[in-house]
Design a protein around this nucleic acid. Structure first.
Lengths: 236, 236
DNA sequence: GATGATTTGTACGTATGTATA
DNA sequence: ATATACATACGTACAAATCAT
């Protein structure tokens, strides 16, 4: 009788069952769906994620919802307090400072490692990606540039050839994503970003570890500056 | 009728209910208990953590067990595969290399930041802790030294004044703990460790960020060397 | 500040997928 | 290879805590 409910997969499919990623669990798919919704901005920082509502919305019971929430909590994207449920993570200004600071350090470290250990193929790919971004910046196509920018940084994470650091870098990027939505809105930011990338790429291609570190650190510090007062009101 | 089960808290208390940390949930206490058991070596890498058995052992239902496992999985201490349950994380040699490499980078970064931003009080405390370790090393008291060593590194994490980096450093240390149990077993390792610490402390006290980074990186690299072939057989 | 409504935390039952004989 | 056994994933029920009035 319950299998009947699962047989009516129509609703489910529209919401979650991607069918391509068939072999995972509901909780995993849920975690991804909720994370997406957070990164998209659908659930804003501070938003209270109620188990019952999520269960209803995604047509599952509360059990997988709870497991998904626990996952997201561990990744820092949401915060849970016992008996008080989960809310989309809000960052105080001190926490944002920590996050941006850590991000700059980790990105710089990855750039340094990348300069030392990227393969020729990886270097060439990074370079050509960077070249391609000239045109996007010139068109002032912010959306495309933002996407390419993510790829650019991800390639450097991979190029560091250290999965643990790369994972951490990706997780930091995710946690900061809700606060970076407007990153390239400022006038001329694309051109500046591209110029900073150029320094990074040059150092990496030259296998100059120190310069790569410095250039990336500088780049990330400027990114941070673009986000002066984004902090949420501190919650005691 | 179920509340009767909870009323028989005697068994529970022996296992979990610390009573001091009263206000958390079962799942949280469980996660800590299981993590402890893993770090103690009671559950060795590769050990299969069966929900039913854990539930029985800790006198709870499978639900909080599952949530605890989900938490630990996210922290990297255990690995879960859908429909196949959880096992204590085993690291391949490549993963261990990543972990030690990341650890060295992060520790070095924390040391650099600590050199720049530790308060005078923090500096003094670090120094006196370090001085106290001379005596422990001289006695060759490995257990005490290991404990003090953890404190030493933790103080540097805190001294970096960046919670995100500090958390990451602690999490890395935890993930590596199962592989570091024999760290100070080698003859004369304590004295060597203390000498390396001395360089780090000196640099931090001198506010020499570059030197602090280099000294700590060197120290951590030597630690890594002490763990040549600890890797588990790759399970691809 | 007490009472009722809502929501979380935990227990338990059932079905499906994985492993094993 | 088939079937059996078993562990995991999910749904549902209920108790206790939080919150809103």
């Amino acid at each position: 009788m319950l299998s009947a409910l699962r047989a009516t997969g129509d609703h489910l499919d529209t919401a979650l069952n991607t069918r391509e990623t068939a072999s995972s669990t509901q909780a995993e798919r849920l975690a991804e769906a909720i994370a997406d919704a957070i990164l998209t901005g659908e659930y804003a920082p501070g938003f209270h994620l109620e188990e019952g509502l999520l269960a209803e919305r995604y047509n599952v019971s509360r059990t997988p919802v709870r497991e998904a929430l626990r996952n997201l909590s561990a990744s820092g994207l949401i915060e849970t307090r016992p008996r008080r449920g989960a809310t989309v993570a809000t960052a105080t200004s001190a926490q944002l400072e920590s996050l941006f600071g850590a991000m700059a350090e980790i990105e710089a470290t990855c750039a340094r490692l990348a300069a030392m250990s990227m393969t020729p193929i990886e270097r060439r790919r990074l370079d050509s990606l960077h070249e391609g971004m000239i045109e996007i910046a010139r068109r002032d196509d912010r959306e495309s540039y933002a996407a390419a920018n993510v790829t650019f940084h991800m390639e450097i994470y991979s190029g560091a050839h250290n999965d643990v650091l790369a994972d951490f870098a990706r997780s930091l990027r995710r946690r900061l994503a809700p606060y970076r939505r407007a990153q390239f809105r400022a006038e001329g930011r694309l051109a500046r970003s591209h110029a900073e990338h150029a320094t990074v790429v040059a150092a990496i291609l030259a296998c100059d570890a120190g310069a790569a570190h410095a250039a990336m650190f500088h780049h990330m510090s400027l990114v941070e500056d673009a986000f002066g007062q984004l902090a949420a009101p501190s919650r005691a």
